[in-house]
Amino acid sequence: MQKKQRRLWVKKCSFTFPNKREKLIPWILLAPSLTGVSVFILIPFADVVRRSFLQAVGGRFVGLENYKNVLENTAFRLAAGNTVRFLAVCLPLLLGLSLLFGILLLQAGKRSSLLKSGFLLPMAVPAGSVVLFWQLFFDKNGILNEALQHFGGKGVDYMNTPKAFGVLVAVYLWKNLGYDMILWLSGLMGIPDSLYEAAKMDGAGGWKCFLHITCPLLLPTAFLTGILSLVNAFKVFREAWMIAGNYPHDSIYMLQNLFNNWFLKLDMQKMTAAAVMLAVVLGCILIGSQKIEEKWGQGM
């Protein structure tokens, strides 16, 4: 009897603790992707970190001098300030509007199929066509100014005034609203209807259901949508560059414009140092967001 129990225990342990071959299978499957990431991302970035401490000509070690020059650079301060302001304005607006439209479309049910297609249309339109439309709309002699002058208003040069910041915000929201709305919809559809029905039977109204049921259960979706929106915010450079060129108005001169101009001038010392600082800041934001999500998830 004891031998039989021992055999069963050994058999059970064999399922609990996989052998060496089974442990190697995931690494073998991941090897091609890890190799590509290492060759094209990790190794080049490690070289960027190394070059950020060196002089571009001669390779002499200069320590933190490159970082000091970047922080004292007027163009870097302008670009960093505009980028932070752009993120502070766009991210809350995008997350709030996409959640609002997601809730409205979910309540609309089957009638919302055409509206969903309309919100997702900007994702399918080529960037060149998008930029051409916005140029025709917001140009000094564009459609919007023609309409204003027709009704007795005064035309505005949007792209050469501080109003260019509002144009860039509008482009970003228009381009990414549908994408974030789909992410919110996936989270909303994962909340059981029975929770809302039970809350309504206890006398809870729509606002209380939203605060005590929808918001807590949407936290994982909120973190994911926020991180993806942050990443997409750094991709708005394509539209900004195509609308206003290498040197746009000071209100929309972003870090991407600065990096592009430094690259054209082959200013490797400033570019590598600024790239490392940007990577560190974004890495801290991502790690901090993940820690907060894990902490709130355990609290729930």
Score class of each variant (00 low, 15 high):
residue 176 N to K: 10
residue 195 L to N: 01
residue 188 L to Q: 09
residue 192 P to K: 06
residue 207 W to P: 02
residue 200 K to F: 06
residue 192 P to Q: 07
residue 210 F to K: 10
residue 189 M to L: 14
residue 174 W to Q: 00
residue 213 I to D: 11
residue 217 L to V: 12
residue 178 G to P: 14
residue 204 A to Q: 11
residue 210 F to N: 01
residue 177 L to P: 03
residue 206 G to M: 12
residue 185 L to F: 09
residue 205 G to C: 10
residue 201 M to F: 13
residue 209 C to H: 04
residue 179 Y to A: 07
residue 213 I to K: 09
residue 216 P to Y: 14
residue 211 L to Q: 08
residue 174 W to K: 00
residue 187 G to H: 01
residue 208 K to N: 05
residue 178 G to E: 04
residue 211 L to T: 12
residue 200 K to Y: 11
residue 214 T to K: 03
residue 179 Y to K: 01
residue 183 L to R: 04
residue 174 W to G: 00
residue 196 Y to S: 10
residue 180 D to W: 01
residue 179 Y to C: 03
residue 204 A to L: 03
residue 213 I to M: 06
residue 184 W to M: 04
residue 215 C to K: 14
residue 199 A to F: 07
residue 177 L to D: 02
residue 200 K to G: 07
residue 195 L to H: 03
residue 208 K to F: 07
residue 194 S to H: 10
residue 208 K to G: 06
residue 205 G to A: 13
residue 207 W to R: 12
residue 194 S to G: 10
residue 182 I to H: 02
residue 188 L to M: 04
residue 175 K to W: 01
residue 181 M to T: 00
residue 185 L to G: 03
residue 177 L to A: 02
residue 215 C to F: 05
residue 213 I to H: 14
residue 193 D to T: 10
residue 209 C to V: 03
residue 198 A to G: 14
residue 189 M to F: 05
residue 179 Y to F: 15
residue 208 K to E: 11
residue 176 N to V: 00
residue 215 C to N: 09
residue 190 G to W: 05
residue 185 L to Q: 04
residue 203 G to K: 05
residue 213 I to R: 11
residue 176 N to L: 02
residue 191 I to P: 09
residue 182 I to D: 01
residue 216 P to G: 06
residue 181 M to N: 07
residue 214 T to G: 01
residue 191 I to V: 15
residue 180 D to N: 15
residue 193 D to R: 15
residue 216 P to V: 12
residue 181 M to R: 05
residue 184 W to D: 01
residue 212 H to S: 09
residue 193 D to C: 05
residue 182 I to C: 01
residue 178 G to Q: 09
residue 186 S to H: 09
residue 208 K to Y: 14
residue 195 L to C: 06
residue 203 G to V: 12
residue 194 S to N: 07
residue 183 L to S: 04
residue 177 L to C: 02
residue 206 G to L: 06
residue 182 I to T: 14
residue 187 G to T: 04
residue 211 L to Y: 09
residue 205 G to R: 07
residue 186 S to A: 15
residue 189 M to V: 10
residue 217 L to E: 04
residue 212 H to Y: 08
residue 192 P to G: 09
residue 203 G to H: 02
residue 186 S to W: 04
residue 197 E to I: 13
residue 173 L to A: 15
residue 209 C to N: 08
residue 173 L to V: 04
residue 201 M to V: 15
residue 202 D to T: 13
residue 199 A to C: 11
residue 196 Y to E: 00
residue 176 N to E: 10
residue 184 W to K: 10
residue 208 K to H: 15
